[in-house]
């Protein structure tokens, strides 16, 4: 477990927070068989009890199940977004630095086109194409996120490609993959990890923002941003209900930010 050994205290705290949240999300799915969408109108705004440890919402739905569901959606989204954008961004960045020429120019043009527009605007425009689609939100967020990896990786890889160490390995006839693994990846590793953690936080925030302005996933999906906007009108009846998704969102983002380590 050398990887954990290298983390700072701050990063470990982040990992512990995320671990607890993930445990809650997964354990709820396997240990309890509560349907988060089942309504019990007579029990609307019921205070927490053994059946529903986190209370019930305006339709009497079990908040415990809904929050765990919301966490699962957020974690799934952040995972697929980070993997997609990191793989694409690193590949494109290394390829652009290595090939150079028109290939580099085309990729740079593409990256600049995306950077010319604030990310959330792009995500909102995509969300308008197919309303309520998880896939569309995922595509939009990944499209915005890969640019960061691309720019960073390209800048670092340019130095590595020109380095004497790589040149001599190349002269000795090592393959491209070996050169990447031996010379380029070690220089990228730390930064890509920290970008990935920030990217995960960004994607969670982006999805909840889209949900919050009501153009993201559709009810009755237990998406955190959507839950916040749905519970907002009932603040006076049950303030704790509204605070639950807000604090979960806060913990996820805090966890990823701590895990990322270095300040941005």
């Amino acid at each position: 477990m050398t990887f954990i050994g290298k983390l700072s205290t701050q990063q470990r705290t982040g990992a512990v927070i995320l671990g607890c949240l993930a445990l809650f999300a997964v354990a709820e799915m396997f240990l309890f068989s509560i349907d988060g969408n089942q309504q019990f109108l007579a029990q609307a705004f019921a205070s927490p009890d053994w059946q529903a440890p986190l209370g019930r919402d305006q339709f009497g739905r079990n908040m415990f199940a809904r929050l765990a569901g919301g966490l699962r959606i957020s974690f799934t989204l952040s995972l697929v977004c980070v993997v997609t954008s990191a793989v694409l961004g690193v590949l494109a960045g290394v390829a652009a630095a290595w090939r150079g020429g028109w290939f580099d120019n085309v990729l740079n043009f593409f990256a600049n086109t995306i950077l010319a527009l604030p990310g959330l605007v792009l995500i909102l425009v995509f969300a308008a194409v197919v309303p309520g689609s998880f896939v569309m939100i995922y595509l939009a967020i990944s499209l915005v996120l890969w640019v960061e990896y691309f720019r960073l990786v390209r800048a670092i890889a340019l130095n590595q490609v020109a380095s004497p160490a790589l040149q001599s390995s190349m002269l000795m006839g090592f393959g491209k993959f070996y050169l990447f693994r031996r010379h380029i990846w070690p220089a990228l590793k730390a930064d890509v990890f920290s970008l990935a953690a920030f990217g995960a936080a960004t994607s969670v925030v982006a999805m909840s923002s889209v949900g919050f302005v009501y153009v993201g996933l559709k009810p009755p999906t237990p998406e955190l941003g959507l839950m916040i906007v749905e519970l907002f009108p009932y603040y006076h009846e049950a303030p704790w209900l509204l605070l639950e998704p807000i604090s979960l969102l806060f913990l996820i983002v805090l966890g990823f930010h701590l895990l990322a380590g270095k300040a941005r």
Partner: peptide, 21 residues
């Protein structure tokens, strides 16, 4: 860190609760 760890609309909601409600 507290402010950065939440989407800006959550911060807005907290201020609404506190100052408006």
């Amino acid at each position: 860190t507290f402010v950065r760890s939440q989407p800006v609309f959550c911060l807005g909601l907290l201020l609404i609760f506190l100052f408006a409600m």
